[in-house]
Each structure stands twice: as structure tokens, then as C-alpha cells.
Amino acid sequence: MVEDSEIISVVNEQGKVIELLSVNEWVANVDSGVKSGKGVVVTPADDVGLLQESLHKIPLIALDFVSFDDGRGYSQATLIRKRWSYSGEIRGINAHLDQLQFMLRSGVNTYDLQEQYQGSNEHDYTHGFSICYQVAANNADMKEKF
């Protein structure tokens, strides 16, 4: 079962609106997608392997973390950022406060928190841990022990 994300566009790091295609839409229309500067939205059930071939042409990949207990997005981010060395923006959408550091360490570099977390102290959760015990896509600012 593939659930479509409800998010159809995001504003990227440079402040530009990026419209998002689903993984299937992108794979079927890579050339026109690239030409019109479209990004891709990935839901937990999507197979990110489908993006591998055209990965470096995608200006922005939005990973949907809408379901708190569904951890597939962390593996998707790791594959895209670490294994396939994607250097573009990976946006965590529908993000949860308590999972920010997990997301960022897995390779997500920007995020949109769900509305319920407005006004929270994000730093507590982006930098809650100063020590880490494993290799990850991004261990910046952390003391590593492994």
C-alpha cells in the first residue's frame, strides 16, 4: 500500500518554492522533472532504490516522517545521504520534536516540524546528545566513541 503524502510543495533552503512529485511520478518523468526544477516526496512505504539512477538530478528530497513510530525514513535518509552520497537538500517533513537528532544524524539536513511542536525548544532535541556510539550520515558536533 502506497500512501501519498499530503505535502505538495516546500520552500527550500534558498527560499524558493519547490513543487514535489511522488517517487513514481518522478521516475516516469525524470527529464521534465529536472527541467521544471521539481523535487521528490518520499513516503515511508516508498522504495528509494527507484531514485538511485537519477538521484543527483533531484534538487530536493522530502522524506515524510508523519507517523511517529514508523522508522523507515531513517533508513531511507541513510541510503540516500550516506550510501549514495546525495549532496542536495534532504527535508524532513511532518517532523517530530523528539526525533530531530535521529533524523539529522541519518542525513536529513532541513526539517519542517509538525504544528503541535510550535514554540518548543528545538535545541534540546537537535543536540540532546553530545556523544554518539555509531557511524552515521552526520555526526557533526558529536564526540564519537566506537
Binding site: D70, G71, F102, R105, S106, Y133, Q134, A137
Partner: peptide, 16 residues
Amino acid sequence: ELVRRWFNIHPEFSWL
């Protein structure tokens, strides 16, 4: 001990 360290707050595998 080495495996214990590795699975502590693993960023990829904490929401299985």
C-alpha cells in the same frame, strides 16, 4: 560491550 555501544540510540534503527 561493542554491540551494546553500537545499538545505543542508533539514529537509523531506533523506531523498528
